[in-house]
Nucleic acid binder design. Structure first.
Lengths: 126, 126
DNA sequence: TATTTTACTGCAACAAAGTTGCGTTAAGCT
DNA sequence: AGCTTAACGCAACTTTGTTGCAGTAAAATA
């Protein structure tokens, strides 16, 4: 197991999630941190932070991995199912603070749901 | 543009979608057809069939691409939003014939939704 | 049916995202 | 300061998917 240490790399990476409510592509994080740390390190820190419930990840419609800061998640309780939204114009991805109603389907016991919405955000549709 | 020809390869690939309602991983199709055709061919046929509205694709929670046969889609009208379900036990992915209610979110104009559900199917939960 | 057109296929090489092994570094403890 | 061990960097690798080009085979035309 082991306890996550607050190294320079971890602090730096976490700081990138602060000033925004948007999700960030893992690939973009790696590009942005190119001079400061190795891509392996980025992936490993993201893994650890996710396991501790500090951030959460999801896969976009192109198969790329996104990360965003959790609001009210912990390592035990990580199942707040909220949809993610991507604007077709500015490409930004945001977590929507909306409760998703999981449909009840006969013959299927649904335990989790990943909802990825696509459309136009307010700034791009005006 | 060009019109899709019904070549041997196309017929063979399409036949794999017949006997099942389940979705198929692109990677699995390639493995299954290894002796009969090149992986480039598989990807290209899948692309064409999707453009024509004969099959549709989506990305699973692991980032891999799935394909399934459409029921009631055409090249013009491809927007029947139905959820996809993966059983955590048998790993099968199926299209659920359920209408998804897209939530109305302020400041966001939602045009499309990808819903990926995870849980237990009937055969695996009994 | 022979010819011509053009969509389709195979191959090899490539691209990009993400992983693994291992030797080294540095955080946190006493 | 010294010790333990988590964390890091590097290089090499794996996997999925793409691209360019030369050759093949459908389908259209005559």
């Amino acid at each position: 197991m082991g306890i996550t240490r607050k190294t320079k790399a971890v602090k730096k990476l976490l700081s990138l999630f602060e000033p925004t409510v948007s999700a960030i592509l893992a690939v973009d994080l790696i590009a942005q941190l190119k001079e400061e740390m190795n891509k392996t390190t980025v992936y490993r820190i993201l893994d650890r932070l996710e396991n501790e419930g500090i951030i959460h990840s999801f896969v976009g419609s192109d198969g790329l991995k996104w990360y965003a800061k959790c609001t009210g998640c912990s390592s035990n309780n990580h199942n707040d199912i909220h949809p993610h939204f991507q604007c077709t114009n500015c490409k930004k991805v945001t977590c929507l603070p909306v409760e998703i109603k999981i449909p009840i389907v006969e013959n299927y016991t649904i335990e989790n749901a990943a909802v990825f919405l696509v459309g136009k955000c307010n700034e791009c549709s005006s």
